[in-house]
Simulated scan of single mutants.
Amino acid sequence: MRTGLYDFHLEIKAQMVPFAGFSMPLLYGQTGQVASHKYVRDHVGLFDVGHMVQSFITGPSAERFLEWLTPSSLSSLVPFSSTLSVFLNEQGGIIDDTIICKHSEEKFYVVTNASRRDRDIEWIRSKIGEWNENHRNSGGIVRLEVLDNWGLVAVQGPEAASYLQTLTSYDLPQLTFGKSAYMDIGDVQCHVARGGYTGEDGFEISIPPEHTVATTRLLSKDPVQLIGLAARDSLRLEAGMCLYGHDLDESTSPVEAGLNWVIGKDRRQDNSGFIGAETVLGQLKNGVTRKRVGLVVEDVPAREGAKILHPETLEDIGVVTSGIPSPSLSKNIAMGYVQTVDGFNRKGKEVKVQVRGKPRNAVIQPLPFVPSRYWRGVSP
């Protein structure tokens, strides 16, 4: 599959690779991954994220429906604010992580992962069928509209806001992290959400299909650089963010993944009613046997699948799910799951990681590795 920017990428000499069923840019021209990564941290870069699935879930009972599918407190969100959330299976495992933006009680903009497209859409449609059957007589019909072919780009970095402000009359300082709005970029109305996948200030911009290429050209002028998947992965890992299929899957709960904060305070009651609640609420109360952690590894980088070992007995106590040499920190960083017995998930705990046939010293680190710089408004 291709995003609406496929030909645009080829035009500017992108190196294309398969990713989540799409042909996506890995690098552009002669610019390497480290240079691209550092440019986003210091300036501003643009990513094509049009492979992600954009949808609207609408209807008189849309809010209650989504509070059944997720553990989030969507009723507490004000219009045009958003939250990271998770769709859970009946066992409390994560079907997918998602951003949910509330436009009103009856309309939600939802972004999910390309790699989970078929699973997500099938799951949501099946649950809509159940919901509508049970709520038909009360007028609570819910609908799913998938925004096929819409563009989605992420403009990320400390100079993102100042550049975007030159292209819109909207007062961007009023749009704080986690908020969204419809605004004209050039002469095209787009849905713009403040946030992203890098830990930097930035915006995710949804563009109507017929305007995707022209608007992206406008958004990618100097000082903006086009950034590919290679730097996107290192940026998100430094920011402590999960990649589905690596750090999250259907056998992993939000409590094990350290995503307790997506479970709303008012959803932590026995009668909260979200799918998977019995398992998740039990884990909140009684704890879990493994937790997602950050690690700094000596000598060489640990990659996905590397075993995390007891520092003395060298018994398996966990596994690395993502790992890179950090361009920002000049250290080998990784994320993975470790047993909670004996506190191996605690900050500063020393462990070993099996890399290239040799146990390497490693230390448990808090996430994120690089402090986030989201725009939350001017302090009083």
Rank of each mutant, 00 (worst) to 15 (best):
R2T: 06
T3I: 04
T3Y: 02
G4I: 03
L10P: 03
E11W: 00
P18T: 09
F19P: 03
F19E: 08
G21Y: 06
F22T: 04
M24N: 06
L26D: 12
L27Y: 05
L27W: 05
L27S: 01
G32Q: 01
A35S: 13
V40Y: 01
V40E: 01
V40Q: 02
G45S: 05
L46Q: 02
M52V: 04
G59S: 14
P60I: 00
S61E: 09
L69D: 05
T70C: 07
S72N: 13
L74D: 09
V86Y: 05
L88W: 03
N89T: 05
I94Q: 08
D97P: 06
I99V: 12
K102V: 03
E106Y: 12
K107S: 14
Y109R: 15
S115M: 11
R116Y: 05
R116Q: 10
D118F: 06
R119H: 07
E122L: 08
R125H: 00
S126H: 10
G129V: 04
G129P: 01
E133C: 09
H135V: 04
V142D: 06
V142S: 06
L144A: 05
N149F: 07
V153C: 00
E159N: 15
Q165W: 11
T166K: 13
D171N: 15
Q174Y: 03
Q174A: 11
Q174F: 10
F177S: 09
K179R: 15
M183F: 04
I185Q: 06
G186L: 02
D187H: 07
V188Q: 05
V188Y: 01
Q189Y: 03
C190T: 11
A193W: 14
R194W: 03
G195P: 08
Y197R: 08
G199A: 08
D201W: 02
G202C: 02
I205F: 00
I207L: 05
P208H: 02
E210D: 06
T216H: 01
K221L: 12
K221A: 08
L226W: 00
R232Q: 14
L237Y: 04
L243H: 06
G245T: 11
E250P: 01
P254I: 11
E256S: 03
L259P: 01
W261D: 12
I263M: 04
K265Q: 07
S272Q: 05
I275H: 02
A277E: 07
E278V: 07
V280L: 07
L281N: 02
Q283K: 09
T289R: 14
T289K: 15
K291M: 08
G294K: 02
E298I: 08
R303L: 14
R303P: 01
E304M: 13
A306M: 14
K307C: 08
D316N: 15
S322D: 03
G323V: 10
I324M: 13
P327C: 03
N332C: 13
A334Q: 09
M335S: 12
Y337F: 15
V338A: 10
V341F: 05
G343Q: 06
K347T: 15
G348A: 13
G348M: 09
V353I: 14
V355D: 02
R356I: 13
R356K: 12
P359Y: 07
A362M: 10
Q365A: 14
P371K: 10
R373N: 09
R373H: 09
Y374S: 09
S379H: 11
S379D: 07
